[in-house]
Amino acid sequence: MTTALDTRRPGQTAEVPPPPASRRPRILQYNFLGGLTGWIWLVVVLVPIYWIVITSFKLQADYYATNPLVPSSPTLENYRFVLENHFVRYFFNSVIVTLGAVVPAIVVSFMAAYAIVRGSAGSRFLRSVNAIFLMGLAIPLQAVIIPVYLIIIKLQMYDTLGAIILPSIAFAIPLSVLVLSNFVRDIPKELFESMRMDGATEWGTLWRLALPLTRPALVTVTIYQGLQIWNGFLLPLILTQSPEQRTLPLALSAFQGQYNINIPAVLASVVLTTLPILTLYVIGRRQLLSGLTAGFGK
């Protein structure tokens, strides 16, 4: 199956001894068309990013007077302007929403994944739970946003950060359960057996056996869901109203609506809100990449 996690293994073995590497299909080498596409795509990806970064350091007056692809007299003025527009607050809103949703989502998903793997054989209930989550994968958030909005109003949570957190938890669950249960299933039966012999409860086995053995998968799923929620736009747009409750993506869009002529400032806001994720990418590239394809894990 197509998975970043699986493919790395053959990739690594092929890199170590030269003979297997040279036995790679020749189509993958001297591939003119592929190479051309590869380098052109690099330009397509990098030029806008380069333009965002250098422009965000230009004064608005310079921006109109200079070549847009050449950096000139760098200034932090735009960043100061963005920060003055409450972006620190929006940043913390995003942090609260992301942590507040990801942590509970992963904990309950992990518990459910454990229960499904350990109990499905003897429990029709757990088999139906599994089926419900599988079906849940096919429900797009956009399609159910109106009833979610109604429920949030009935819970009297409209225009709070909690209104974003609760549905975010729910929509992180199906995929997390699916990926985590695949990893819990890989734990050898004998280990569970010996835990039972030692008198451990299922709850104890969950934390002392399953948790350490599935840690890489937990990190991957956490990163994937964290990125989804950090970048989420629809829930904040629909479920909040006041500027104080904005998360970063919504704040970006509002900021641009207000200062759309001041392009350097708008781009500084883009850089600033992306910086945390880019930092994470530099630090934990491998985890993040496998996180991005978590849906294909196994």
Binding site: M111, A112, Y114, A115, I116, R118, G119, S120, A121, G122, S123, F125, L126, V129, T201, E202, W203, L206
Partner: peptide, 9 residues
Amino acid sequence: RSVSVSWMA
């Protein structure tokens, strides 16, 4: 056993 893990779901 399944009763004892069901609640976790």
